[in-house]
Design a protein around this nucleic acid. Structure first.
Lengths: 186, 186
DNA sequence: TGTAGCATGTAAGCCGTTACATGATTGA
DNA sequence: TCAATCATGTAACGGCTTACATGCTACA
């Protein structure tokens, strides 16, 4: 099981937590899982392709960590996935017993900066400014995510992670500004 | 050509830059490329496996962006790779004309924090403290890299990237401390 | 004499993406 | 009626890692 498998399993665990006080936890469709991943996981893990969401669900169902339930609303067939008891314990075991890898960063801006000597100073400048703009977009996205999470207790940790992400982006903006200043001095 | 291909090509470009005033730029062996990648690329891109270094070199040679030269010192056969003129222009084109993707972050600590509700507060604490320790190790490694780069003009950009990396880790430490404080208040 | 480092590769396999294919439902 | 969104999947492939296999060289 890859980390992404557990990440998706984790999304299903939240679905249960949210649904506790409702009549039924009906689970999530593959499509909904993808949407949730795009709102949270994407900022600090991955945004899996739809096709991967479905193949991961197949795997989790095979391992009985997830329960599928077919649903027919009109002519449309959808499968809703929900985490099983076994899935929940498996997730908890992973959370507490697997060792937590150091983060992996793939930073094309830094990579190109390394070879800055082969690039004109104006081109470097342009690249860094474009990066600042991209950062601003990301910040806006994440700010909205944070706002929508609210102060609900069940979403305390997702909110915490969103705040962490905002701090992260703030730091990245500062570092980029510092770098631009340094380059201007050369 | 993947970004990693260009990254390795970039390492060979530095070899030329360094060797300019020497008798000959003899190129780098696969083993040396791996070592250089581990000292620089690893912090903000990847640390390719040895097997990947060799297969990337095969590809670059096939594309004539890199020149191999066999060498026999005693009974030992080594291949040294050096960047061709075509390889250098190809690298420059990539640097200036490809669009620079937004960084990709895979942060297992943040991922597990998301599911913090399934984990005890002490376990979260332990995880974050372990992360701080890992960060300290990384900082030490990168500090040494920065020191060894010196203030040589040919290594100005690598030095700049190393400094950027140190700022990045500093920020990460601060953010982690802030997070630990927040968790303690809960 | 043996171990750590230097040096090069092949094969298998996983993770993940892109491209392709299909069809239902909602609302402008 | 047409486009956007919802919904599900298969096939091919690229990138990268792990495991395996081989052998030289320096040095303790």
């Amino acid at each position: 099981m890859s980390t992404t498998s557990y990440a998706l399993l984790g999304l299903l665990a939240f679905d249960v937590a949210e649904g506790e006080n409702e009549a039924e936890a009906t689970g999530l469709t593959g499509y909904e899982i993808k949407q949730r991943a795009d709102r949270t996981l994407r900022f600090y893990w991955v945004s899996p392709a739809m096709s991967q969401v479905y193949s991961e669900m197949d795997r989790l169902v095979r391992l009985e960590l997830v329960d599928p339930s077919d649903e027919k609303a009109g002519k449309r067939k959808t499968r809703r996935f929900s985490i099983t008891a076994s899935g929940l314990t498996s997730l908890q075991t992973w959370l507490s017993e697997s060792d937590t890898d150091f983060p992996t960063l793939k930073h094309p801006v830094a990579l190109k900066l390394l070879m800055g000597g082969l690039l004109g100073p104006e081109q470097l400048q342009t690249m860094l400014e474009k990066y600042r703009e991209d950062l601003a977009l990301r910040q806006a996205d994440l700010t909205e995510v944070r706002a929508q999470l609210g102060d609900d207790e069940t979403l305390r940790y997702p909110a915490l992670v969103a705040e962490w992400g905002l701090d992260y982006y703030d730091a990245e903006v500062e570092i980029t500004n510092k770098l631009i200043k340094k380059l201007n001095r050369l």
